[in-house]
C-alpha cells in the first residue's frame, strides 16, 4: 500500500485549513453573548463595526450555561458576555479570560403574559395556578435560577408546564400565546414590544442579575477583542444598553 495519497490528502487538508484561518482571523470578531442580550448586542455590534471598519462582529447567542460549556469545550470565541457571574466564573477559573470580567449591565425580572392577557394573570401569585400554562427558563440558565429564587422569596410554588432552554424560546411561546405566563427579564418585555405584556414584580421580592463581559485568551485578534469590551463599557455602549432597558452599574 502506498502512503503517497494519504500524504497528499493530509497536505491538502492542512493547506485548506491554514488558508481558512488566515483569511478569517483578521476580520472576524466572534462574540458569544447571553440570549437576553440579543437586541442590545446587535445594536452594539453595528455601532462597533461602524467605528472599526474591517472588523466583522459575529454574534453567537445562547443561554449563558450553553455559552460556558461551548467556551470550556474549546469553541472559538473572542469575547464572552453572560447573564450572571456564576456562568462566567468557571471561565476565569480555567484561565481562559485575559483579565477579570467586568460588569457592564444589570437586569431585573418581570412576569410576562401574551398581549391581551386572556388568562387574566395579575401577578406572581398566578404562577401557582395549575389550570394555567406556565413556563420558566430551565434552572440551568440565569433567567431560570433567578425566577426560582424570586418565587422562593415570594413563597410561591409555580405550576410549571415547561422549562425552556433559554429566555428567547420562552418568549417565543409566550408571544404565540401558547403559554399564559412566565418570568423573563424586564429587557425582554421591552424588546418584544407588542407581543407580550409585562407585570412588575414587587421590588422587595424582585432580584437583579449582573452581566459580566471578558475577552478570551484564545482571541484570534486580542486587540479587537479588548476594543470591543471597552466599547461595551463606553458611553456609547451604555447608551445602547440603557435604550434596551438594562440598568447600568
Amino acid at each position: 500500500m502506498s502512503f503517497r495519497p494519504l500524504l497528499v490528502t493530509l497536505l491538502a487538508a492542512a493547506v485548506a485549513t491554514a488558508g481558512c484561518a488566515g483569511n478569517t482571523s483578521r476580520d472576524v470578531l466572534l462574540v458569544s453573548a447571553a440570549a437576553s442580550l440579543t437586541d442590545a448586542f446587535n445594536g452594539i455590534a453595528l455601532a462597533f463595526e461602524a467605528d472599526h471598519t474591517g472588523v466583522d462582529v459575529q454574534l453567537n447567542f445562547a443561554g449563558s450555561s450553553s455559552l460556558r460549556e461551548q467556551v470550556l469545550g474549546g469553541a472559538p470565541a473572542d469575547v464572552v458576555a453572560t447573564a450572571n457571574p456564576d456562568t462566567m466564573a468557571p471561565l476565569v477559573d480555567a484561565d481562559l479570560t485575559t483579565s477579570d470580567p467586568l460588569v457592564f449591565a444589570r437586569n431585573r425580572m418581570a412576569v410576562a403574559v401574551p398581549s391581551g392577557n386572556l388568562a387574566g394573570v395579575s401577578g406572581l401569585e398566578d404562577l401557582a395556578d395549575p389550570t394555567l400554562l406556565i413556563g420558566l427558563c430551565d434552572e440551568a440558565v440565569p433567567c431560570g435560577s433567578l425566577a426560582r429564587a424570586i418565587l422562593l422569596r415570594a413563597g410561591i410554588t409555580a405550576a410549571i408546564d415547561t422549562n425552556e432552554p433559554d429566555v428567547r424560546s420562552l418568549l417565543t411561546k409566550l408571544e404565540a400565546d401558547e403559554l399564559d405566563a412566565g418570568i423573563v427579564y424586564i429587557t425582554d418585555v421591552i424588546a418584544t414590544g407588542d407581543g407580550i405584556e409585562g407585570i412588575a414584580i414587587a421590588d422587595a421580592i424582585n432580584l437583579a442579575t449582573d452581566y459580566p463581559i471578558a475577552a478570551l485568551r484564545s482571541a484570534s485578534d486580542p486587540q479587537a477583542a479588548e476594543e470591543f469590551v471597552d466599547f461595551v463599557l463606553s458611553t456609547r455602549g451604555r447608551d445602547i444598553l440603557a435604550r434596551h432597558g438594562f440598568e447600568l452599574p
Binding site: 443561554g63 440551568a140 440558565v141 410549571i160 408546564d161 415547561t162 425552556e164 432552554p165 411561546k173
Partner: peptide
C-alpha cells in the same frame, strides 16, 4: 419535541431533552 412540547420532567422531558439540559449543569 422541545419546540412543540416543551421540557418538563416526567411529562415531556425525554432522554434527548434530559441530555441537553444535563449538559448545562
Amino acid at each position: 419535541t422541545i419546540t412543540f412540547a416543551g421540557n418538563l420532567q416526567s411529562r415531556t422531558q425525554t432522554l434527548p431533552l434530559a441530555v441537553f439540559v444535563a449538559l448545562e449543569n
